[in-house]
Simulated assay, not measured.
Amino acid sequence: MIYKNKAFRITMNVIMVLLTLCCILPFILLIASSFSSEADLTKYGYSFIPRGFTLAAYKYIWAIKENILRAYGMSFLITGIGTVINLVMTLLFAYPLSRKDLPGRKWISFFLFFTMLFNGGFVPTYLIYSNVFHITDTLAAMIVPYLLMNAFYVIMMRTYIMTNVPMEVIEASMIDGANEFQNLARIVVPMSKPIIGTIGLMSAIAYWNNWTNGIYFIQSRRNLYGIQNYLNSVISNVAFLQTHSVGSGIVTADLPSISIRMALAVIAIIPVLVAYPFFQKSFVAGITVGSVKG
Results as ranks from 00 to 15, higher is better:
2 I>N: 15
6 K>H: 13
7 A>V: 11
8 F>P: 01
9 R>C: 02
9 R>S: 01
12 M>C: 08
12 M>Y: 09
21 L>K: 05
22 C>A: 13
23 C>K: 09
24 I>G: 07
26 P>I: 01
27 F>Y: 05
28 I>Q: 02
28 I>W: 04
32 A>I: 08
37 S>W: 02
37 S>C: 00
37 S>A: 00
40 D>Q: 05
41 L>A: 03
42 T>L: 07
44 Y>T: 09
49 I>A: 07
51 R>D: 06
53 F>T: 13
55 L>G: 15
59 K>L: 08
60 Y>F: 13
61 I>R: 13
62 W>H: 09
64 I>P: 15
70 R>K: 11
77 L>E: 13
82 G>K: 02
84 V>I: 15
88 V>I: 15
89 M>A: 10
90 T>P: 12
90 T>G: 12
91 L>A: 15
95 Y>M: 09
96 P>V: 04
97 L>R: 12
100 K>I: 06
100 K>H: 05
102 L>W: 11
102 L>T: 13
105 R>W: 03
108 I>R: 02
111 F>R: 04
113 F>L: 10
122 F>H: 01
124 P>V: 00
126 Y>K: 13
130 S>Q: 09
131 N>H: 11
132 V>M: 08
135 I>V: 03
135 I>F: 08
138 T>D: 00
141 A>C: 01
143 I>S: 04
144 V>F: 15
145 P>C: 00
150 N>G: 12
150 N>M: 06
152 F>M: 08
153 Y>N: 13
156 M>E: 06
157 M>A: 05
159 T>C: 00
162 M>I: 13
165 V>Q: 12
170 I>F: 04
175 I>L: 09
176 D>L: 04
177 G>H: 13
179 N>I: 11
181 F>Q: 08
181 F>S: 08
186 R>E: 08
187 I>F: 00
192 S>Y: 03
192 S>H: 03
195 I>N: 07
197 G>T: 06
197 G>N: 05
200 G>Y: 00
201 L>A: 10
201 L>M: 15
205 I>A: 06
212 T>F: 15
216 Y>M: 07
216 Y>A: 07
217 F>W: 05
218 I>G: 06
225 Y>S: 05
232 N>Y: 15
232 N>T: 11
233 S>G: 08
236 S>G: 02
238 V>P: 14
242 Q>F: 05
248 S>L: 06
252 T>C: 04
252 T>N: 00
253 A>F: 10
254 D>G: 13
255 L>H: 04
255 L>K: 05
263 A>Y: 01
266 V>K: 12
268 A>N: 14
272 V>M: 06
273 L>D: 08
273 L>N: 07
276 Y>C: 00
279 F>C: 03
283 F>R: 10
285 A>K: 02
285 A>Y: 10
287 I>E: 03
291 S>L: 02
